[in-house]
Computed example of a mutant assay.
Amino acid sequence: MSATVQGKCDPKFAKVREEFERNFAARGEVGASVCLSVNGETAVDLWGGMANPETNDPWREETISIVFSCTKAAVATCAHILIDRGELNPAARVSDYWPEFAKAGKEKTTVQMMLNHESALPTLRDPVKPGGFADWDYMAARMADEEAFWEPGTRNGYHMINFGWTVGELVRRVSGKTLGTFFREEVAEKTGAKFWIGLPESEQVHIAPIRPYIPKPDDQPTEFTVALMTDPASIQHKSFMNTGGWDFNDRKGQAAEIGGGGGLSNARGQVAWYTELATNSGRLVSADRLAAMSMVSVATQRDATLLIPTRFASGYMKSMDNRRLGLGPGTSAIIGERAFGHVGAGGSIGFADPDCGLAFSYTMNQMGGGLLLNDRGQSLIDAAYAALGYRTNAPGAWVR
């Protein structure tokens, strides 16, 4: 579809604008935003297309959409702020802060294991009650009561939505504030980021409803998708389907503090707080903590949930290059080697790269296929790194 693209773009990043426009013309984009800053200066801030084609409502400067698992990076940032203050110890047992958690094979689980998706709670076995995702105390109790799916710390498996309640409950217990309140006060208000974990009603008018991805006949299904569709007892099926009827286009779902995938923002909103991490400003965390946040803390050849190789840095995703493994499209997300951030379902992303002072985000309302990025988001990232003088991403991450 053709679309009007608005906003600003430094001529140095003209290729980013070209790829953004190509997304609408050739890659099925409906409505989207892309933003990046370099060394604290915004160089690209573009938006375009339709926020809601059914009502002919255009994507405006203030339009936001659910960014799904990009929210996990916001949750991780809250935890790292507490770690930096000495209030949360990554090596400590979770039970030091959350005594009820120490049962059902989880007694030795550490804070670091939770950040690494190693705490063995990738999903819940029994059904979530209707509306359960909007009931924080209920979900935290379910986390505490659930039996570990494996011995914590012996492997990692992406905690698709549960990450928001495992790590998020630690934030609540230590800070005494709800996750959404802590993020708002300690991150959003300090950086000017329009990013919410629990959307106030006043912002409802700006939402672009999410349009689910409709598989094409020639799509190559991933192993995750096969398990999701064929094995109701699998981690994959339960992670995706056992949601208590969570509707991410419903007001109740958007108002709830769902740290594993319910944040709402746009590209500018994510770049606002990632800029502080990309530039080592010290406004959110110290230089030492920032260095730790960018380091790989766990990697595997077969994630127990996603069933692909994954790499994480204490709650954030690192560059993941699975292009040569024949796992199907959408199983890679290639950024700089020092970069860290998170993708969201359908292909959104936000990240910081301290190596070059880059903060980047892309968000949209038309979901794409795959587990990680599709060609819409990756093309924008590739153009940004090329503009910054990076030579290639052939090694598995962008290098100069």
Score class of each variant (00 low, 15 high):
194 K>Y: 00
274 Y>S: 04
237 H>F: 10
330 G>D: 04
45 D>E: 11
207 I>W: 09
134 A>E: 09
288 D>E: 15
387 A>K: 10
230 T>V: 02
266 N>W: 05
305 T>V: 00
209 P>R: 14
185 E>K: 14
252 K>T: 08
19 E>K: 15
157 G>C: 12
91 A>D: 09
150 W>R: 13
153 G>P: 09
43 A>K: 15
332 S>M: 10
166 T>P: 07
229 M>A: 14
254 Q>G: 02
239 S>I: 00
154 T>F: 13
166 T>R: 13
10 D>R: 12
91 A>C: 01
37 S>P: 02
172 R>S: 14
346 G>Y: 01
269 G>S: 10
197 I>Q: 11
237 H>Y: 14
367 M>T: 00
19 E>M: 09
8 K>R: 13
199 L>Y: 04
60 R>K: 15
289 R>E: 08
304 A>C: 04
20 F>M: 11
152 P>N: 10
98 W>C: 11
207 I>S: 06
59 W>H: 06
317 M>E: 08
120 A>L: 03
346 G>E: 02
65 S>L: 03
94 V>Q: 07
266 N>E: 06
343 V>H: 09
4 T>G: 01
204 Q>C: 01
9 C>L: 05
356 C>P: 02
149 F>E: 12
222 T>A: 12
313 A>I: 03
30 V>H: 08
328 G>M: 07
246 W>Y: 15
167 V>F: 09
78 C>W: 11
273 W>P: 01
43 A>I: 00
338 R>G: 03
365 N>S: 05
108 K>H: 14
225 T>N: 04
303 D>F: 05
136 W>G: 00
169 E>L: 09
79 A>F: 05
78 C>P: 10
222 T>D: 08
234 S>T: 04
127 P>W: 02
184 R>A: 11
228 L>N: 14
88 L>Y: 12
216 K>L: 14
396 G>E: 03
205 V>S: 14
